[in-house]
Structure formats: C-alpha cells, structure tokens
Write a protein that binds this DNA or RNA. Structure first.
Lengths: 251, 251
DNA sequence: CGTTCTATTGACTCGATTCAAACTAAGTGG
DNA sequence: CCACTTAGTTTGAATCGAGTCAATAGAACG
C-alpha cells in the first residue's frame, strides 16, 4: 500500500542521493499521476514503443530486459519504488528495450509534458532527473562488469547486494530481508546463466550460510561475507549517507 | 589532425543524432577548450577523481574501464572523436570508473562552468548533452546484453560492428576499415574473455572471411555476415539517417 | 642488441551448459 | 474434493566452451 501522495515515493528516492528543496518537492507533489496495477510478467513499456509519459514505480518491482539472438533475455537492472526507469524517453523517443513487471507491481504514469513543465520551473528538478538517469547508467556499467569479470557465485551475490542496498536506501529493507517475487529464471537472466546453474549457485550461497533464500524472500545472514564473495562496492550507486544506509545490513 | 575548431568534432557528433541549430553551434564553438595529448594507456580521468571539467575526444580513442576483484579490468565502452565520455561529472561529482587512452589520443577539456553557462543559454544544448549521456547508457546496456547472452565469437563481432557504425556516423570510417590501436588484451577486456581466447576468436573471424584483422587495422569484408554472427542491431545507437550511415559498410 | 610487449600455439582442466527427468506447489475444472 | 494442468525448483550425467599453464615467435623500443 502507498501512503500519502504517489509521488512521495519519488521524493524519498531523490532524497537518498541529494537534498530536495521544498519548491521541488511541491512541484513533484503537483505532478498528475495515473496509477496502474501491473500483472506479474506484464510488459509495462515495450521495446520499440514511443511513450508520451514516464513511468514511476510505486510498489513492487520492474526490470529492464533486452533480447539477444531473438530468444535469450538479458535482465539488465531492477527497479524499486521511487525509480523512474524510462526517464530516458524524455529525450530518446524510441525504447530500445522492455520494462516488465517482476511480480505484481503498481506504477504511476506522468506525462512528458508535465515533467518538462515542472523541470522548466525547477532547475534542481531537472538536474535531479538527469542525475537519476546517470545513476541508472552507472548501474548498467556495474552490470557489465559483473557479467564480464565475475564468476557465477559472485554475480549472484552481487545482484543480491545491490538490491539490498537500494532497498535499504529508501527504507524498504525489512528484517534484513529483500522480498522480491522473482523466479530463479529471472535471477538466471539477470546473472547471465541458465536457471539450472542459478539454482545450484543459490544452493551454494545457502550452504555457505550467507543468505536464507526461501520462496522469494532473501534474508541476508552475513553481509560482510556476502560483500566479499560479490566483490561489491556501493560507490556506483552514488548514495549520500552510505554508512547510515548500510547500518541495518552490517548488524 | 583536427581541422577547424576542436569543438567542431562535438557538433559533428551531435548532428549524427539530431539537427543542431546555428545558435547552439555558435555556443559550442565559443566553448574554451584546453587541448591535451595523451599517451597510450594513460589514465585520462581517474576513478575516484572529482573533475571540474568535461573531456571531449578530439582524436584517437578513449575507453571506459572499471576494475573487478582488484585486478580484472572490464572495458565497458570505447569513445571516438566528438564523444564526451565524462559528461556524467556535470551531475555526479565522483568518477566511479576510469577513462583511459587506447593508443595515442587528443582530448579537449572544457570546464563544467562554461558548459553550464552554455546550457543555460541553449535549452537545445542541454537536451543534446543529456541525450548524449542517455545514448552512452544505451551502449552500456548493449554491452551487458553482449556479455551476458552472446557467445565469444558474437561478442567479438559485436564490438567490431558497434565501432564500425559509430565511426561511420561521424565520417571516420576509411575504406570500410576501422583503425584503432587496441591490443588483443584490450579486445579481451572489452569482451570479457582471456587474451588467449580473444586471439583464437579473432583468428576464427578471419578464417570465416568476415574481417581482415592485421596489426590494429580491422577491415570489414562481409558486413551482413558479420552482423548476423554478432546479432547486431544499430537501434540502440539512436542515430538519424541510419541507412545512409550503413551504406559504406553494406557494399 | 637485449628487453619488453604483443601475438600465437598446444595440452590440460574446469566451470557452465545441455539434455533429461523427477518433484513440488498452485490453480482449474469436472 | 480430487484428477489434471502448469509453473517453478531440484537433481544427475554427459558434453563443450573457455580458462589456465606453459612455451615460442615476432615486433617494438631504448
């Protein structure tokens, strides 16, 4: 459930990176949002489409996917509440990838026109949204490093670490657990391996006592050891107060 | 050698994506540029640094690299003349990766202050630079798809295809060849494999008659077949007049 | 003219995929 | 309420791509 204005999710997210002025917060609060419930697996914004609005994740998770060889799906990044995964359509009309719902999700659509209008009133908002797209890009880069240089177990652990930190940053980490309704096939597509192999590596993480991974709830048991296995550093997420964000994980 | 103003490289690049108004062109021409020659392998902009200027590639090639496991280097993307690889520093102060020179390169530094000043005079320029960072992000995404889903030969072919199209788009493709002073180790780091394996796959591309790969000159012999092997589509580069760009390659 | 960097080749090993199949959980409809 | 379907997870065995180790050959450079 979403309390208060849908757009408060966005404010929370922006505040995890930088301070937000009252003016900008008011402008965001004034944005007209069309809320939509999405089915698990639903294509929220399709590749090849030319959307005239941006989509803001309000609840649940989205993911960015692109096909290779007409059948292999690479999952490039996950999106959590407060993220605007298709902010790129403000300046690149055609989507070159899909945005899909991982499990049931709630999104809000905000027309490009109203976003542009708000940005013209607040330079801070403009820079904040640009910055969001840049952090998104940093996540893609880390995804490339992950897929190109780390072995299977590290890739898997890295995805868990990133999601944990991003959820912690917006206050959605519960009991040191991330609750995301992904299937092992989703995990496999995110880590560039087969579902069979993903399954075996999940078992290995469990056997090492690093995580508790039951159904779709992943509880982090040994954060430092997991970070070590994952070769994870949160620098690329460009969060402010990173120590405070990590505190509930380190314990 | 660079003819005319150094910044004309940037105008050429921007024009490959969208039209550029005379005002914006004039503003770009008025940007103060500090030119610097870079040694092969030199770190042009270091990870962890907080640059106060943007760097514009004038001649030669840069590459974006990030380390994994304290020793493995992933090469995420190449930069060609006209690109501004660190435009992200306009809004994210800390570099989370390195920019290095592939072979000798010439870059121009433009202070953040003067870029911001120019953007405040031309909304078009602001949107164009934002768009540049978004296309950069699209290249990272494709890099992730490449590393995660394609086999070695396809990854290698894909890197060649992308560079060929990007060079063609700014008129730097000569005789259907790309002339880039990379080592096979650079190629290996870009494709997520060992130099030994990169060498074997380069030989395979040669054996299939797709490319002529001698020293650091890669001539494309069979574009369509190479695209087929690479599973390449230029959509993610968001170029205008893509057919005209591809013409010298298809022949 | 030796030193260093780069390219190439061969043999061996191992991680990851493929193929095949069993098992669990959750719906669905008769 | 129970067969039946479907989606997801788990296990095993065989194969193959890619990495490692080792060594040589060539090119570039001071």
């Amino acid at each position: 459930m979403i309390h208060g204005l849908p757009s408060s999710r966005l404010v929370t997210r922006l505040q995890s990176v930088t301070d937000v002025s009252p003016l900008t917060e008011r402008l965001i609060g004034g944005l007209p949002v069309t809320v939509k419930n999405c089915e698990p697996g639903e294509i929220v914004v399709p590749q090849g489409g030319k959307p005239s609005s941006c989509c803001l994740v309000l609840d649940g998770f989205l993911a960015r996917t692109r096909m290779a060889n007409r059948s292999e799906r690479q999952l490039i990044s996950f999106y959590v509440p407060g993220d605007i995964p298709d902010a790129s359509t403000l300046h690149l009309p055609v989507m070159d990838h899909n945005l899909i719902a991982i499990g049931p999700a709630v999104v809000g659509f905000i027309s490009h026109a109203s976003v542009h209008a708000a940005m013209s009133e607040s330079n801070e908002l403009l820079h904040a949204l640009w910055r969001e797209t840049l952090i998104d890009a940093a996540i893609f880069r880390e995804c490339a490093v992950n897929l190109g240089q780390r072995d299977g177990l590290a890739r898997l652990a890295h995805v868990v670490c990133e999601l944990a930190v991003r959820l912690a940053a917006i206050g959605l980490l519960r009991n040191g657990s991330i609750s995301i309704p992904w299937t092992q096939t989703d995990v496999a597509d995110a880590t560039g391996m087969t579902p069979i192999h993903a399954n075996r590596l999940i078992q290995e993480l469990r056997a090492k006592g690093l995580v508790q991974w039951e159904a779709r709830l992943v509880r982090i048991l040994k954060w430092k050891a997991l970070v070590e296995v994952a070769d994870f550093s949160a620098d690329y997420l460009h969060l402010k107060n990173i120590d405070r964000v990590l505190k509930p994980l380190v314990s």
